[in-house]
Design a protein around this nucleic acid. Sequence first.
DNA 1: CCTCCACTGGGTACGTTGTACGCGGTTCCG
DNA 2: CGGAACCGCGTACAACGTACCCAGTGGAGG
Lengths: 260, 260
Amino acid sequence: MADAEYVSIWMRPERPARGPKPVYSRAQITEAAIRIADAEGLDAATMRRIAAEIGAGAMSLYRYVPSRDNLVELMADRLMGEIDVTGMPSGDWRADLTRYADGLRAMWLRHPWISTVQRSLPSFGPNQLLLIERLMGVLDPFVSIDENLSLMAVLNGYVEGTVREEISSAEEVRRSGLSESEWMERSSPYVDRLVKSGEYPIFTKIVMEARQPHLSRDDQFRYGLQRVLDCIAAALPSTAGSAMPAHREEREEQDGPGHR
Amino acid sequence: MADAEYVSIWMRPERPARGPKPVYSRAQITEAAIRIADAEGLDAATMRRIAAEIGAGAMSLYRYVPSRDNLVELMADRLMGEIDVTGMPSGDWRADLTRYADGLRAMWLRHPWISTVQRSLPSFGPNQLLLIERLMGVLDPFVSIDENLSLMAVLNGYVEGTVREEISSAEEVRRSGLSESEWMERSSPYVDRLVKSGEYPIFTKIVMEARQPHLSRDDQFRYGLQRVLDCIAAALPSTAGSAMPAHREEREEQDGPGHR
DNA sequence: CCTCCACTGGGTACGTTGTACGCGGTTCCG
DNA sequence: CGGAACCGCGTACAACGTACCCAGTGGAGG
């Protein structure tokens, strides 16, 4: 019933054999689009705008990319390539997953617009595939494939959830037009009203914490990440000795959040 | 610099005092929009389409809602109300969080389009607020506020990550035009090529598992969820027995993330 | 070498979107 | 009983993705 004619971008070749040499390239277009999205958001990365960025006509882009949605897929995969996973199943799974999580977070913070692209259907680009192989390879010797998937869902979910909040609050600050220190004191009138009403004690605590954080974002992230890794460690057989999760007190010393 | 005139939807009243009685209502419009989005996706929920659904003119909607984005916020908050959290800090935190996770997953599966709405800035609607109070209240007696936030990030992240994959694969099946059983055998030509190439052994295992799952989606979800709850249990002080609501202990001094 | 035609970049145009603006009618306040 | 405040809604516009068409171009077959 549906269009069975659909073929993935990754199947159709960039360049045909015949004809004059193309002036541009998929990589160049993708790069330009990412540049615009980084600066002004994904919505600003219009076909016309991208074309202008590289000095081309709007319709020329369609010689390289079947549609804008497909271009976004290209962009997303390009971003996956920014996460360094070289030599990834290194033997120390805890180090590997930490490096991956840090890389993923850093990438999201560099390109916040990625949080708005829905992967309603997954497109397995080359970078994405490499990432899967390397990352899932880390725990593959220890657990079944679907247990592995579950654990990675936890890890990815934590990172994405956390970073989404970071992006949101950064966006809120930007929109309010205030500097970050100003925003600390005087938040939006709506949030202020909620807090003053006294009906939402826990929400109030969250707001207070956000205004006067006693942990830097990085420390906060690292702290929660260790929690997640502990969870993963618990799910692994004892044969998978990495740096063994020590007792709580010691762990607090070595990788717990530092006081500022 | 930015528009300091911005006010949240939740601040501007639905109805003014004066003038003729409105024929429609925000709730009615929101409901219609959700109905359309459920059936045909969020993109299909055009202002004109929504207006037609309730028998109104397109521009009439703007008497009730400042913009389409704001309407989407209304829709999202309406969905939060579908998650049943009545009597939520019940004393048994494990039961509470399980019920919440199940409810969240069920809601997402009922309204898959919610995965595409970016919460680039969080809008604290009434349902969202109630959810925060009740849900965060579950662990509030045991941990500090930002530890609580971290743990909820893990939980939400797991649920959302898992459900996103469910939605994706359902979407893929629907788009391929094949029945689910047919899809098991013959997947997309691109994925097929990747598998046959032999260069992606782990990816291949994932595909195989997806075709011949030995666990139902529900069981898979429940299994991973228990892992997450175990992780949360490990982060809680020992006084927080699942069945007994303990009062807050001073353990926070030594256990919490460096609170002072 | 020439010839052919698959390819190139790009201009024009169409359908659809969100929404600014203004109109004539309706309801409530003073 | 005005008149201000609000209603539903038709028109209009800018911006979007992209279908279609064109004149040029350069590699392959003769």
